[in-house]
Design a protein around this nucleic acid. Sequence first.
DNA 1: ACTGGCTCCTGAGGGC
DNA 2: TGCCCTCAGGAGCCAG
Length: 275
Amino acid sequence: MPELPEVETTRRGIAPHILKQTIHSVKVREGRLRWPVPENLAAILTQRRIEAVERRGKYLLLRCASAADQGHVLIHLGMSGSLRIVTADTPLKKHDHIEIALASGAVLRYHDPRRFGCLLWLSDAPQQHPLLAGLGPEPLSEAFTGDYLYQRAQGRKIPVKTLLMDSQVVVGVGNIYANESLFLAAIDPRRAAGRIALARYHALAEQVKNVLAAAIQQGGTTLRDFTQSDGQPGYFAQQLHVYGREGQPCPLCQTPLKRCLIAQRASYYCPHCQR
DNA sequence: ACTGGCTCCTGAGGGC
DNA sequence: TGCCCTCAGGAGCCAG
């Protein structure tokens, strides 16, 4: 499932193949994603040049210019989406929904079995778009600090894990990394966000950055064979401390890890280390 | 203003 | 071997 590190890995993987390339043709095989893919996508994109490949949270933004204007293709991979660089003769796989063919002969293929993702066209300033306008800071930026988290937590009664996964607070921290960060910061994921001391938020912000940065580095491994197979597998699975490990011993104190539901999402923690 | 619950969708995995 | 059931999950949306 693509979280921020996987999206960043995808961005780095596709950018060299599509940057400064002119779009030759576009094929939409299945346009029923989270929101319908624009009917006239091919007409909009054909002959445009891809000028930038950017990321905001878990969204990818392809800045596309024509002689007259510019706009952005906005892509979210949902939880089962992926982008691959292939050639026109690469056999189609089930759920290969959209193809953007470039003048070089390279083809960008959007694949998404569960269709939770989206691909939209933004004709004006992307940061004004409703999907992007209210997003919190990037977790790896200087704007994301313990002070900031603490301030956003004041008066909030929701579990701290839910706060951490709220993209209005900070982008890109999905379920897996929220669990891991809270374990490393020794904070009980169920604790009310507004009842955690500043010093503990400093530790939490620090761990979020550490976990995401480490995962992006792991993504570098995936990067190399990105254009081969699907670049998948649990390459970061070995270094997960708590996620999916109910009943297994805590790596720090050996107490069996617990699982609970927080906001309908599986949550794992050590009842001894995390307070 | 907050909060919790629902929703989209398919494939994996468990039980029998 | 196969079928059915449950679950997983990002994040927008809505009702209370």
